[in-house]
Amino acid sequence: MSETRTITVELNGRSYTRTIPTRLLLADFLRHEIDLTGTHVGCEHGVCGACTVLVNGTSARSCLMFAVQADGQNITTIEGLAEVNGSLSVLQQCFHEHHALQCGFCTPGILMTLTEHLRDNPEPDEVELRTLLTGNLCRCTGYQAIVKAGLEAARCMREQGGLK
């Protein structure tokens, strides 16, 4: 039970090495070992999507993954979304402008899910985004503003000519 292992992860462009219990979940590793508390835990059973992060660019539920599985991998969390100059990403900015968050608890997972999708699908339509977002629960917004922000972000990113 107290078995430990030393892992190294590339996290938002920085490398971290930690010795951790093998049963530690990736979500808890991020939040409580590295103190990146932006990733949220809403259900711990893989339904709500609040804990979504990108593992090598692919969205994954960090509550369903052990930290040791992330050894040697490249992880992006909400703290890694802003532009290099510190300004909000286009998607983050659109969330702000369209009131796509209320309590903000679901927001990290939703931003990660949309970041991945918009990177690969620059011209999404509403049905597509709604279907995508079935993997993320939000109790506050009714999703309308989130979908709108996602569509608007896609439009802005197309106009800016490509994605970062």
Partner: peptide
Amino acid sequence: VLRKEDEALLRGKGKFVDDVK
């Protein structure tokens, strides 16, 4: 007007109870 709350939350810098250490 746009919300004052958003900036921190959008950057993952909110302060929820489980973030207290």
